[in-house]
């Protein structure tokens, strides 16, 4: 049992940890390898990082740095989801070195939640945290494909052009983000065997 319907809700949730850690750049990488039947979601941030003691306790739902609620749920939820889908969960961090988090799943696992509305998640993250740059990379290796499909969206490239002319929630900018993500995010074509 998880509280989220899809993995892109986990991404939306976990990303906030990097924001709270003062990151200026967060990389979200999705790797779908249908040949190896593996789905990997990686989040890397350049925030404050944490020491080994905190890192060890982080998957415990009773640990949180927040003051508004007494339990931190995001990381335990993602870890639980990965582990029940034949995958695993790992975090690496050092004070001053940022944090890297990787969750893997058996791509075809019956309990694996779908990736879901990635366009909505990435749009929320870009618009919702305008102080943080987002690097999004999504690679898909189909069973039949000779080479991987790859899609990259980097807000640093966007910002270099826009500068301060318009906020990211400007309607035209929103349209640009939505269209680019909708057209670019690769979608796995599953083999259905009856």
């Amino acid at each position: 049992m998880t509280v989220f319907r899809d993995l892109s809700q986990h991404i939306l949730d976990i990303y906030e940890n990097g924001v709270k850690a003062g990151a200026t750049l967060i990389a979200v990488e999705i790797e779908e390898d249908l040949l190896q039947d593996l789905l990997t979601i990686t989040l890397r941030d350049n925030g404050a990082g944490m020491d080994a003691q905190m890192l060890q306790r982080i998957a415990d739902p009773w640990v949180t740095t927040r003051t508004t609620r007494k339990v931190g749920l995001g990381i335990p939820f993602l870890k639980q989801t990965a582990e029940m889908c034949g995958g695993n969960f790992a975090m690496h961090s050092q004070p001053g070195q940022g944090t890297t988090l990787a969750a893997t799943f058996q791509h075809s696992h019956i309990d694996r939640p779908p990736l879901g509305d990635l366009t909505a998640t990435i749009t929320c993250l870009i618009v919702g945290y305008p102080q943080v740059d987002l690097y999004y990379r999504h690679r898909l290796l189909n069973l039949t494909a000779q080479s991987a499909e790859e899609f990259v969206f980097d807000t640093r490239e966007m910002r270099a052009i826009l500068e301060d002319a318009a906020p990211l929630s400007d309607p035209d900018v929103l349209g640009f983000i939505r269209n680019t993500l909708e057209a670019g995010i690769p979608r796995a074509k599953h083999l259905i065997i009856y």
Binding site: V152, F153, D154, E157, M158, I161, L162, E163, A165, A166, D170, D172, V173, F176, N179, T180, G184
Partner: peptide, 12 residues
């Protein structure tokens, strides 16, 4: 990234 020309128009 593609469509960056469109973004330049939005900026203008």
């Amino acid at each position: 990234m593609k469509n960056l020309a469109e973004l330049r128009k939005i900026k203008e």
